[in-house]
Structures are given as C-alpha cells and as structure tokens.
Design a binder for these strands. Structure first.
Lengths: 224, 224
DNA sequence: CAATTATTGGCAGCATCTGCCAAGAAGCGC
DNA sequence: GCGCTTCTTGGCAGATGCTGCCAATAATTG
C-alpha cells in the first residue's frame, strides 16, 4: 500500500541505515510456504496430532521463528485460505456499476483461487474439507470470512452511496459472505475425488445465482 | 434427548447401581455459573490476562474440574451466548406455516434472551461487545452462530419440503443466521450505556425487517 | 455397612506461546 | 576490505493451557 522505494528514506526522516526490513511480499511468501507444509501435516495426522515443532521442522525454520510467523498453530491455514477469499473480494471490488453481478462474475471470477497453481487449488479445497471435523480450523475459516465481510461492506457502501455503518449495507455484506461460504463448502464437498474446470464453472454459476437472489431481496431495502 | 427416569434401569440392561451420573440440566447450570464468573473476569482484565486457574477459583471449583467443564478457556462464554442464539432458534422452530415471519417474530420473539434475568441480558450483551477486540471470543461467537445455522437448515427444510442438503435451503439458512448476527452486534453496540425494553423492541423490528428482505429474494428460488 | 459407580481434586507432564538475549545477515559510508 | 547500524534468527527459560492418571470422596442399591 504505502510502498516506497527502499533507496530513498521513508518520508523526511533521516536516511535509512542498517539492514532493511524484509519486504512484506517476501514475508507473505514465507508464511504461505509454511502454510503448505502445515496443511499437509494437518491432513495426514490431524491438528491435535501435529505440534508446532513438527511444522517448523517440516518448513525448515526454528520453532521460535515459526511462532513469530503464526500466533497459533491453527492460523497456519490462513495464508492458503486467504488466497481464495481475497480473490473473490478483489473481483467484487472491480465490479462495474453498469453490470449485473451475475454477468460480472461470469466474466471475471475463477472460483477458489485466481491465477494460482493447481496444487494450491487442491490445497485450498483440502483445507476447506479439513475445517469440517477440525473445529479449530473451522474457527479460523469463519474469522477469515468475517474479514471478507468487512471488505464487502466497503464495496457495497461505495456502490450504493451509503455510509459503511448503514445497517442495510452490513446485512447485505453479511448475506453475501455467508453465501460465498456455503458455496465454497459445497464445491469442496463435491470435489473430494479431484477437481475439474467444469466443477469450478458450476460453482461459479451456483454462487452467482445465489448471490443474485440475495441481492434481489435486499436491493429493495436501499431503493435499488 | 434419550432420557430415562433414573429409578428404572437404562433400557433392558442390569438394574443401575452405584452413584448416578449428574443430570444434564445440573451440568448446564454449573457451566452457566462458571460462565458468568469468566465473563466478568474477561471484561475486567481481558482474556489474555485471565488464567484458567483464576476462573476456577472465582467459580469455586478446582482447576482440574474447570478444565473438565470447558475444553478451552474461551469457550467459557458459550453457555451465556447460547441462551441468546438458542432462544431465536426455538422461536423459529415454532413458526406457524400460515404466518408471515415478521408477524411471528413480533408475537413470539424477545431479543437477546427469552425469559431470563436482567443480569443475564446484560451479561450476554457484554460478551457480544467483548467479542470485538477479543478475536478468540469472536471465534467462539461465530462457531455458535454456525450451530444455529444448522438448526435453521432443519427448520427451513421442513417448512419448504426440501431435503436439508439442498443448496437453496442452506443458502437461506446461512443468510438468516448472518442477519441475526449483524442485528445482534448492532443492538449490543447500541446498548453500551444500558438496555431498555424499547431498544430490544427496536432490535426485533430491525431483525424482522432484514430477515423478511432476505427471505423475499430467496423465496423465489424455491418457488415460495 | 458393603458394593458399586460417578465426580472431584491433586500431581505429573507435554504442548503452546512469549520475553530476552546473543549470533548472524544485510545494508550503509568509508 | 572494515566498521556501524538495523533487522532477523535461534536458543533458552518460563508462564500458561490442557490431559492422563490415580486416590479420595460422594451418592446410590442391597
């Protein structure tokens, strides 16, 4: 967001000296890498059966730095899951004012993860499936969707010309994020034996249809 | 659920001997009592600043039995929160087929908690407010609402004559539970300085209106 | 009271997570 | 290259979270 080229000093302070902090991007990549290892271990031996030490070892970092990257071991699934949820939010942010939502999604949305490797698609779906039967992971999943909800509030408030605190905006955003969650759970359940492009397309249609229905009802509330 | 009078043996087995297990009801009362102490401590010194030992001491039980009643210390808020969510689900279950939802709620719903002491009403609202700024509590809150969502799925499936796995039913239930959550957060925010009956009535109206809007859009999907 | 079963509390012990500090890494100017 | 500065890393100690095990006790029946 507020990036500056590392050469120049931050704002007007004294010129930077010493080792520069690692870039946020690199940090995210590190977290994602650990996340992949953690998810594999969680799937193999359950969450309770995997210790932080084990994850750290698998990822090739010390236990201490592992705990620096993740406050709780369950949050290891966050980097992978975020990719899926954030992709959806990004598409919503780019929703043109003169286009029906359903058409925009058909145009711009690739479900689960956008522009990502096949392995990550599988990994994300694995995590979603894991969240059933692993309450701790489910809690992380739900928290993530609530973060998405906050993003949707911003999008909808701007689109509807209402303050982001407006109750109608918040209801609409909550309903949309709930629909996204149900649809995601659904596609994860449907793809236990492997995922095909057809399935993802079906998911998009289902999601678009359900979202349209929710919005149809709510649009009347805000005079749409 | 599968209750039997303690006098008689369970089913056809040998007649019961020895100390009978404590009733589920009494267990719930014990949990609720601990819950009240925990919430007070959480509010006073934060979740991180309150140890399980402290809660146990305040509630007058040993630490060991405390951990037997609650698997994680954050779940201490569950018994109190459950009262609120369960009350809503119970009202929904009693929703007559020939009545508009909004009218049924006006007739049968008392927001936050039904038939409970004033102190508990305040305590529930305190917890809801605490969930902002205390992510661990928020996670419990969200998990609870997802349990409510499952209950709503049953209600809606029966009402609409659809299987409970139907995607439309699940979407509708998810949207409703999301609306309940937003409305509850809203009333908690509005009642920081104390709650009056007027506020709760306003909350019911707001909830009823938002639910009607969500259902209006979704009803067309299932041919309502 | 004896026998039986459930709950409780204490203790040991592993897992989770944090604070602190020393070692090393990566940039700077010389 | 060599200092100088700042950041990251890893190791260690320690508090808290949480579980398994066992002895003590409570509540029931015969």
């Amino acid at each position: 967001m507020t990036d500056v080229v590392p050469e120049i000093a931050t704002a007007d302070g004294p010129p930077r000296r010493g080792r520069p902090p690692v870039s946020e991007e690199q940090r995210q990549r590190q977290r994602l890498d650990i996340s992949r290892h953690a998810v594999r271990l969680f799937a193999e031996q359950g969450v309770a059966g995997t210790s932080g030490e084990q994850i750290a070892q698998a990822a090739g970092v010390s236990e201490r730095t592992f705990w620096r990257y993740f406050p709780h071991k369950e949050s290891c699934v966050e980097p992978l899951l975020t990719r899926s949820v954030d992709a959806f939010c990004a598409v919503l942010r780019a929703w043109p004012a003169d286009l029906e939502l359903i058409d925009h999604l058909r145009e711009a949305y690739t479900p689960v993860v956008d522009s990502s490797s096949d392995e990550d698609v599988d990994a994300v779906l694995d995590v979603v499936r894991l969240t059933h039967g692993e309450p701790a992971l489910r809690a992380v999943y739900l928290m993530l969707h609530e973060r998405a909800e906050a993003a949707l509030v911003d999008v909808l408030a701007r689109r509807l010309g209402q303050p982001s605190g407006a109750i109608d905006v918040r209801v609409q955003a909550a309903a949309m994020s709930a629909v996204l969650r149900v649809a995601t759970d659904d596609v994860a359940q449907a793809t236990v034996g492997g995922v095909t492009a057809d399935m993802l397309d079906g998911h998009r249609e289902q999601l678009a249809r359900a979202l349209s229905l929710v919005l149809r009802g709510l649009a009347q509330a805000v005079g749409g």
